[in-house]
């Protein structure tokens, strides 16, 4: 099961949103997608999920071009969590999570499981618009969890940016369990320290181009980060634990 981005470019007239991106996400690994604002992180995710049409190049899902797959086929392989979900109807939390099963056989067990994993059982019958932004992010993640197959691809765009610390930790642990179970997890994230903590691999984007991709510690080269973000970084080593990346 693979997710390959092959020479992908997206131009809006003279504006280059993505330029010849070629990279591959691995099953069973969490890949962090990092870069400064307007680097192209969200745009790349939207191209992969089929929401934007690339100007050139393509995305291969399990060796098949994504643009030739029907929406239903794509939904069986990819689940997507945007930065901020839009639900323009007063559906309950449970109904929003059930939408994850739209192209799949309905499964109350999968929906209940997703609600439980994201700590949403108590608010399952509340209207989605009445929740806080952080709670809405958990609902959106639960929808993707209800949709995702064991060896599927989960694309997330800042999925925990508005969550409280307890639920950030809970959600990231869930992403780790999904990856350990065989899923490919891609997470666009601004918090580099958190990216180091959770990811196995990292894609670094800047100015619409892929600057580096590979093992997180190798990509997070301090000089490279400084040149891309314009900020100095240092590693704080912790014996027996993952070191902390600190912005000076």
């Amino acid at each position: 099961m693979s997710l390959v981005v092959d020479q992908l470019s997206l131009h809006y007239g003279q504006l280059r949103a993505l330029e010849k991106i070629s990279v591959q996400a691995k099953a069973g690994r969490i890949t962090a997608l990092i870069g400064p604002n307007a680097a192209g992180k969200s745009t790349l995710l939207k191209c992969i999920v089929g929401g934007l049409r690339p100007t050139a190049g393509c995305v291969l899902i399990d060796d098949r071009p994504a643009h030739r797959l029907s929406a239903a086929t794509l939904a069986r392989r990819i689940a997507y969590v945007p930065q901020r979900s839009v639900v323009s109807a007063a559906f309950t939390v449970r109904e929003v999570v059930e939408l994850g099963r739209y192209a799949l056989p309905q499964s109350r067990a999968r929906v209940d499981d997703a609600l439980g994993r994201l700590d949403l059982i108590d608010v399952a019958d509340r209207p989605f618009p009445s929740l806080s932004v952080g709670q809405q992010q958990r609902v959106t993640l639960a929808r993707a969890v209800a949709q995702l197959s064991e060896d599927g691809h989960l694309l997330t765009d800042e999925p925990t940016s508005a969550m409280d610390l307890k639920h950030v930790r809970q959600s990231l642990q869930l992403l780790r369990r999904l990856a350990d179970g065989g899923a490919t997890v891609l997470i666009a994230i601004h918090d580099l320290a958190r990216a180091v903590m959770i990811s196995d691999e990292t894609w670094l984007l800047a100015g619409a181009r892929l600057v580096a991709a590979g093992e997180t510690r190798k990509v997070m080269d301090l000089k490279r980060l400084e040149s891309v973000f314009g900020v100095r970084f240092e590693w704080i080593e912790r014996p027996g634990k993952t070191p902390i990346l600190h912005a000076c």
Binding site: K46, V49, G50, G51, A71, A72, L74, A75, R76, I78, A79, Y80, P82, S85, V86, V87, S88, A89, F91, E95, L99, G100, Y102, A103, L104, R143, Q147
Partner: peptide, 14 residues
């Protein structure tokens, strides 16, 4: 029901 989601999300659920 699915179309009440944003375009990207609606497509992503199939």
């Amino acid at each position: 029901d699915a179309a009440t989601l944003s375009d990207d999300e609606a497509r992503s659920v199939g």
